[in-house]
Amino acid sequence: MKHLLKKIAMLAVAGGIAASAQASPEADREAFQNFYKNRFASVPMEEYPNGVYSIDPVGRENWEAIEEFPPYEPFIDEGQAMWEKPFANGKTYKDCFADGPAIAGIYPLWDKKNGMVITLPLALNKCREANGEKPLKYKKGSINDILSYIAYESRGQKTNVIIPKDDPRALAAYEKGKKFYYTRRGQLNFSCANCHLQNAGMNIRADRLGPALGHTTHFPVYRSKWGTVGTLHRRVTGCNKQVRAKPFKAQGEQYRNLEYFLTYMSNGLELNGPGARK
Protein backbone atom coordinates (compact mmCIF):
# COMPACT_ATOMS: atom_id res chain seq x y z
CA MET A 1 0.00 0.00 0.00
CA LYS A 2 2.75 2.34 1.04
CA HIS A 3 4.55 1.38 -2.11
CA LEU A 4 1.54 2.18 -4.22
CA LEU A 5 1.13 5.61 -2.62
CA LYS A 6 4.76 6.36 -3.30
CA LYS A 7 4.30 5.38 -6.90
CA ILE A 8 1.27 7.62 -7.27
CA ALA A 9 3.20 10.49 -5.71
CA MET A 10 6.06 9.93 -8.13
CA LEU A 11 3.70 9.87 -11.07
CA ALA A 12 2.17 13.11 -9.89
CA VAL A 13 5.58 14.74 -9.70
CA ALA A 14 6.50 13.44 -13.13
CA GLY A 15 3.18 14.73 -14.40
CA GLY A 16 3.96 18.14 -12.98
CA ILE A 17 7.30 18.31 -14.73
CA ALA A 18 5.83 17.12 -17.98
CA ALA A 19 3.15 19.77 -17.67
CA SER A 20 5.64 22.63 -17.67
CA ALA A 21 7.97 21.02 -20.21
CA GLN A 22 5.02 20.82 -22.60
CA ALA A 23 2.99 23.75 -21.34
CA SER A 24 1.20 25.92 -23.86
CA PRO A 25 3.13 28.91 -25.17
CA GLU A 26 0.73 31.16 -23.28
CA ALA A 27 1.42 29.34 -20.00
CA ASP A 28 5.14 29.59 -20.77
CA ARG A 29 4.89 33.30 -21.36
CA GLU A 30 2.91 33.87 -18.19
CA ALA A 31 5.40 31.96 -16.07
CA PHE A 32 8.26 33.79 -17.79
CA GLN A 33 6.83 37.25 -17.28
CA ASN A 34 5.70 36.45 -13.71
CA PHE A 35 9.23 35.44 -12.85
CA TYR A 36 10.44 38.96 -13.55
CA LYS A 37 7.41 40.58 -11.96
CA ASN A 38 8.25 38.75 -8.76
CA ARG A 39 11.96 39.42 -8.88
CA PHE A 40 11.74 43.09 -9.83
CA ALA A 41 8.46 43.99 -8.18
CA SER A 42 8.95 47.73 -8.65
CA VAL A 43 9.72 47.55 -12.37
CA PRO A 44 6.64 48.10 -14.53
CA MET A 45 6.17 45.83 -17.57
CA GLU A 46 6.63 48.76 -19.96
CA GLU A 47 10.22 49.16 -18.74
CA TYR A 48 11.51 45.78 -19.95
CA PRO A 49 12.08 46.86 -23.55
CA ASN A 50 14.87 49.00 -22.07
CA GLY A 51 16.70 45.80 -21.23
CA VAL A 52 19.26 45.85 -18.46
CA TYR A 53 18.65 49.55 -17.94
CA SER A 54 15.25 48.73 -16.55
CA ILE A 55 17.01 47.22 -13.54
CA ASP A 56 20.37 49.02 -13.42
CA PRO A 57 20.05 52.65 -12.27
CA VAL A 58 23.75 53.45 -12.69
CA GLY A 59 24.02 52.00 -16.19
CA ARG A 60 20.78 53.74 -17.02
CA GLU A 61 22.25 57.21 -16.45
CA ASN A 62 25.01 56.57 -18.98
CA TRP A 63 22.55 55.06 -21.39
CA GLU A 64 20.21 58.02 -21.19
CA ALA A 65 23.13 60.33 -21.93
CA ILE A 66 24.03 58.20 -24.97
CA GLU A 67 20.43 58.24 -26.18
CA GLU A 68 20.52 62.05 -26.35
CA PHE A 69 22.71 61.72 -29.42
CA PRO A 70 21.80 58.24 -30.59
CA PRO A 71 24.77 56.46 -32.13
CA TYR A 72 22.44 54.47 -34.39
CA GLU A 73 21.00 57.53 -36.11
CA PRO A 74 23.32 57.50 -39.16
CA PHE A 75 22.37 53.86 -39.71
CA ILE A 76 18.68 54.76 -39.82
CA ASP A 77 19.42 57.37 -42.49
CA GLU A 78 21.48 54.92 -44.51
CA GLY A 79 18.67 52.41 -44.20
CA GLN A 80 16.10 54.86 -45.45
CA ALA A 81 18.22 55.51 -48.52
CA MET A 82 18.44 51.74 -49.06
CA TRP A 83 14.70 51.38 -48.69
CA GLU A 84 14.01 54.05 -51.27
CA LYS A 85 16.70 53.23 -53.81
CA PRO A 86 15.34 51.04 -56.61
CA PHE A 87 16.95 47.67 -57.32
CA ALA A 88 18.60 47.15 -60.72
CA ASN A 89 15.24 45.93 -62.04
CA GLY A 90 13.56 49.19 -61.02
CA LYS A 91 11.55 47.70 -58.14
CA THR A 92 12.04 48.57 -54.48
CA TYR A 93 11.57 46.93 -51.10
CA LYS A 94 8.12 48.47 -51.08
CA ASP A 95 7.12 46.08 -53.87
CA CYS A 96 7.81 43.18 -51.50
CA PHE A 97 6.48 44.84 -48.36
CA ALA A 98 3.40 46.82 -49.25
CA ASP A 99 2.87 47.85 -45.61
CA GLY A 100 6.50 48.89 -45.26
CA PRO A 101 8.65 50.23 -43.85
CA ALA A 102 6.91 49.80 -40.45
CA ILE A 103 6.76 45.99 -40.60
CA ALA A 104 8.95 44.79 -37.72
CA GLY A 105 5.92 43.94 -35.57
CA ILE A 106 4.84 40.97 -37.68
CA TYR A 107 8.19 39.17 -37.38
CA PRO A 108 9.23 36.51 -36.67
CA LEU A 109 6.33 34.75 -38.32
CA TRP A 110 5.43 31.21 -39.22
CA ASP A 111 5.57 30.47 -42.95
CA LYS A 112 3.19 27.60 -43.52
CA LYS A 113 4.14 27.11 -47.13
CA ASN A 114 7.82 26.58 -46.40
CA GLY A 115 7.30 25.15 -42.92
CA MET A 116 9.74 27.48 -41.24
CA VAL A 117 10.12 30.57 -39.10
CA ILE A 118 10.71 33.69 -41.17
CA THR A 119 12.57 36.52 -39.50
CA LEU A 120 12.77 40.06 -40.80
CA PRO A 121 16.37 39.75 -42.07
CA LEU A 122 15.44 36.57 -43.89
CA ALA A 123 12.40 38.22 -45.47
CA LEU A 124 14.53 41.16 -46.60
CA ASN A 125 16.99 38.87 -48.33
CA LYS A 126 14.20 36.88 -49.94
CA CYS A 127 12.95 40.13 -51.40
CA ARG A 128 16.40 41.03 -52.65
CA GLU A 129 16.96 37.64 -54.25
CA ALA A 130 13.53 37.68 -55.87
CA ASN A 131 14.60 40.93 -57.49
CA GLY A 132 17.97 39.70 -58.65
CA GLU A 133 19.99 41.37 -55.89
CA LYS A 134 22.68 39.72 -53.82
CA PRO A 135 21.58 38.72 -50.30
CA LEU A 136 23.08 40.69 -47.42
CA LYS A 137 25.18 39.14 -44.66
CA TYR A 138 23.22 38.32 -41.52
CA LYS A 139 25.47 39.58 -38.75
CA LYS A 140 27.47 42.61 -39.80
CA GLY A 141 27.25 45.18 -42.55
CA SER A 142 24.51 46.98 -44.39
CA ILE A 143 21.69 44.65 -43.35
CA ASN A 144 21.89 46.62 -40.12
CA ASP A 145 21.16 49.86 -41.94
CA ILE A 146 17.88 48.73 -43.38
CA LEU A 147 16.98 46.90 -40.16
CA SER A 148 17.65 50.11 -38.22
CA TYR A 149 15.35 52.06 -40.50
CA ILE A 150 12.56 49.49 -40.33
CA ALA A 151 12.94 49.17 -36.55
CA TYR A 152 12.78 52.92 -36.15
CA GLU A 153 9.70 53.20 -38.31
CA SER A 154 8.11 50.33 -36.36
CA ARG A 155 8.63 51.88 -32.93
CA GLY A 156 5.52 51.69 -30.81
CA GLN A 157 4.22 48.50 -32.39
CA LYS A 158 3.64 45.68 -29.93
CA THR A 159 5.44 42.38 -29.97
CA ASN A 160 2.82 39.91 -31.10
CA VAL A 161 4.28 36.60 -32.21
CA ILE A 162 1.63 34.20 -33.45
CA ILE A 163 1.91 30.44 -33.35
CA PRO A 164 -0.81 29.33 -35.75
CA LYS A 165 -2.87 26.46 -34.38
CA ASP A 166 -3.55 24.98 -37.81
CA ASP A 167 0.06 23.90 -38.35
CA PRO A 168 1.62 21.69 -35.68
CA ARG A 169 5.05 22.42 -37.14
CA ALA A 170 4.79 25.98 -35.85
CA LEU A 171 4.38 24.80 -32.28
CA ALA A 172 7.21 22.31 -32.86
CA ALA A 173 9.50 25.16 -33.98
CA TYR A 174 8.55 27.10 -30.86
CA GLU A 175 9.25 24.06 -28.69
CA LYS A 176 12.67 23.67 -30.32
CA GLY A 177 13.47 27.29 -29.58
CA LYS A 178 12.34 26.80 -26.00
CA LYS A 179 14.50 23.69 -25.65
CA PHE A 180 17.46 25.64 -27.00
CA TYR A 181 16.89 28.38 -24.44
CA TYR A 182 16.99 26.04 -21.45
CA THR A 183 19.78 23.75 -22.65
CA ARG A 184 23.23 24.11 -21.15
CA ARG A 185 25.90 24.53 -23.74
CA GLY A 186 29.62 24.78 -24.16
CA GLN A 187 32.47 23.94 -21.84
CA LEU A 188 31.21 26.46 -19.29
CA ASN A 189 27.85 24.69 -19.21
CA PHE A 190 25.50 27.68 -19.28
CA SER A 191 22.04 27.85 -20.76
CA CYS A 192 20.61 31.17 -21.92
CA ALA A 193 18.31 30.92 -18.89
CA ASN A 194 21.18 30.56 -16.42
CA CYS A 195 22.27 34.12 -17.04
CA HIS A 196 19.19 35.96 -18.18
CA LEU A 197 16.50 34.32 -16.07
CA GLN A 198 18.02 32.59 -13.06
CA ASN A 199 20.64 35.31 -12.46
CA ALA A 200 19.04 38.34 -14.08
CA GLY A 201 19.85 41.42 -12.04
CA MET A 202 23.03 39.92 -10.56
CA ASN A 203 26.49 41.10 -11.49
CA ILE A 204 28.95 39.02 -13.43
CA ARG A 205 32.22 40.74 -12.61
CA ALA A 206 31.10 44.38 -12.88
CA ASP A 207 28.43 43.78 -15.53
CA ARG A 208 24.78 43.41 -14.66
CA LEU A 209 22.93 40.55 -16.30
CA GLY A 210 19.89 41.80 -18.18
CA PRO A 211 16.46 40.20 -18.12
CA ALA A 212 15.50 38.08 -21.13
CA LEU A 213 12.13 39.76 -21.13
CA GLY A 214 12.45 42.58 -23.65
CA HIS A 215 15.61 41.15 -25.20
CA THR A 216 14.10 41.10 -28.67
CA THR A 217 12.37 44.49 -28.73
CA HIS A 218 15.34 46.73 -29.45
CA PHE A 219 17.27 45.03 -32.26
CA PRO A 220 19.25 45.83 -34.27
CA VAL A 221 21.41 47.31 -31.57
CA TYR A 222 24.30 49.74 -31.53
CA ARG A 223 26.81 48.19 -29.17
CA SER A 224 29.65 50.33 -27.93
CA LYS A 225 31.72 47.15 -27.75
CA TRP A 226 31.16 46.62 -31.48
CA GLY A 227 31.33 50.28 -32.40
CA THR A 228 28.46 49.65 -34.79
CA VAL A 229 24.96 48.27 -35.15
CA GLY A 230 24.53 44.50 -35.17
CA THR A 231 21.76 41.94 -35.52
CA LEU A 232 20.11 39.79 -32.89
CA HIS A 233 21.78 36.71 -34.34
CA ARG A 234 25.17 38.37 -34.09
CA ARG A 235 24.49 39.01 -30.42
CA VAL A 236 23.39 35.42 -29.80
CA THR A 237 26.52 34.21 -31.57
CA GLY A 238 28.52 36.18 -29.02
CA CYS A 239 26.59 34.61 -26.14
CA ASN A 240 27.27 31.11 -27.40
CA LYS A 241 30.95 31.85 -27.83
CA GLN A 242 31.20 33.26 -24.33
CA VAL A 243 30.05 29.98 -22.83
CA ARG A 244 32.54 28.22 -25.14
CA ALA A 245 29.94 26.60 -27.36
CA LYS A 246 30.29 26.57 -31.10
CA PRO A 247 27.81 29.14 -32.36
CA PHE A 248 25.22 28.17 -34.94
CA LYS A 249 24.71 29.83 -38.28
CA ALA A 250 23.04 33.21 -38.24
CA GLN A 251 19.52 32.70 -39.65
CA GLY A 252 19.97 28.95 -39.43
CA GLU A 253 17.15 26.85 -38.01
CA GLN A 254 18.41 26.91 -34.42
CA TYR A 255 18.61 30.67 -34.06
CA ARG A 256 15.39 31.27 -35.99
CA ASN A 257 13.49 28.94 -33.68
CA LEU A 258 15.18 30.54 -30.69
CA GLU A 259 14.07 33.95 -31.92
CA TYR A 260 10.53 32.61 -32.35
CA PHE A 261 10.42 31.42 -28.75
CA LEU A 262 12.25 34.37 -27.23
CA THR A 263 10.18 36.98 -29.04
CA TYR A 264 7.00 35.17 -28.03
CA MET A 265 8.08 35.52 -24.39
CA SER A 266 8.02 39.30 -24.90
CA ASN A 267 4.56 39.35 -26.46
CA GLY A 268 2.78 42.54 -25.43
CA LEU A 269 5.98 44.60 -25.09
CA GLU A 270 6.55 47.62 -27.29
CA LEU A 271 9.13 47.60 -30.05
CA ASN A 272 11.78 50.28 -29.46
CA GLY A 273 14.60 49.48 -31.85
CA PRO A 274 17.20 50.32 -32.80
CA GLY A 275 18.72 50.31 -29.35
CA ALA A 276 22.01 51.34 -27.82
CA ARG A 277 23.91 49.08 -25.46
CA LYS A 278 27.27 48.92 -23.77
Binding site: N199, M202, N203, I204, R205, A206, L209
Partner: peptide, 16 residues
Protein backbone atom coordinates in the same frame (compact mmCIF):
# COMPACT_ATOMS: atom_id res chain seq x y z
CA UNK B 1 36.02 32.79 -9.81
CA UNK B 2 35.61 36.55 -9.37
CA UNK B 3 33.03 36.55 -12.14
CA UNK B 4 30.56 35.29 -9.55
CA UNK B 5 32.20 35.21 -6.10
CA UNK B 6 33.48 38.02 -3.91
CA UNK B 7 36.87 36.91 -2.57
CA UNK B 8 39.37 38.71 -0.37
CA UNK B 9 41.97 40.45 -2.52
CA UNK B 10 39.88 40.33 -5.70
CA UNK B 11 38.57 43.40 -7.48
CA UNK B 12 35.33 43.98 -9.40
CA UNK B 13 33.81 40.70 -8.31
CA UNK B 14 30.34 39.57 -9.26
CA UNK B 15 27.59 38.61 -6.83
CA UNK B 16 25.92 35.69 -8.58
Amino acid sequence: CLACHVMAGGKAAGNI
